[in-house]
Design a protein around this nucleic acid. Structure first.
Lengths: 106, 106
DNA sequence: CCGTATCCCCTAGGATACTG
DNA sequence: CAGTATCCTAGGGGATACGG
């Protein structure tokens, strides 16, 4: 059928998917999509999410440039907050589509 | 900010995400999006994918009504093939958006 | 308050072998 | 061809404790 050979290099099990597949990522992204938040804010709002997991997840998301960590030095004490990048915003919107898809078919 | 309380019931770590997060799911969906395929077709086209994994993955995808298994009895011998449902089609398209997103930002 | 280090367990999934 | 059964191990992630 001619379409056989051009399966375009499967993007591997690429970075973003690796994180997306992890537990809690989805929830974290949903939360951040509603505005920036601090570490413990996130932790408290997502029941069952251990700090250690949040920590590693946030790190992965930063590596994928989906999330940025911002320190506000002007505050006393300085505050740390996390928010979505532009890429992260777009990703969150796509993810919401999947959620809606599920609802539509349930 | 008033938006705090209405985080709409996180959809749990819901079914479709559980499968999407699994290794190989993404590749399988991509492949099926190009038309239906038989078990060994899929297996052969996706390098490294073990039959056992494909088996379980296909089962999960059917449970999520993303994939249908069809037996063509009229053929000799009867052939089995897998294809995307309508829901599966839509899902595949959403997934492609993520792929494009990555490419755009890489 | 904002995290990281550590330990330990459990399961996803790879290899292999086998059946209808 | 179309799968399933079994076994094994690597690592994800939960609990807990600790550091800046």
């Amino acid at each position: 059928m001619g379409t056989e050979s051009d399966l375009p290099a499967p993007t591997e099990w690429s970075g973003i998917w690796e994180v997306l597949g992890c537990k809690w990522t989805f929830h974290i992204l949903r939360l951040l999509a509603r505005g920036d938040a601090q570490f413990n804010q996130i932790k408290q709002k997502i029941e069952g999410l251990p700090a250690s997991t949040l920590s590693t997840r946030l790190k992965s998301l930063q590596e994928e440039t989906v999330v940025v960590r911002t320190v506000d030095e002007s505050a006393t004490p300085p505050t740390v907050s996390y928010s979505l990048t532009e890429k992260g915003d777009e990703l969150a919107e796509i993810i919401m589509q999947i959620e809606k898809l599920e609802q539509r078919y349930s």
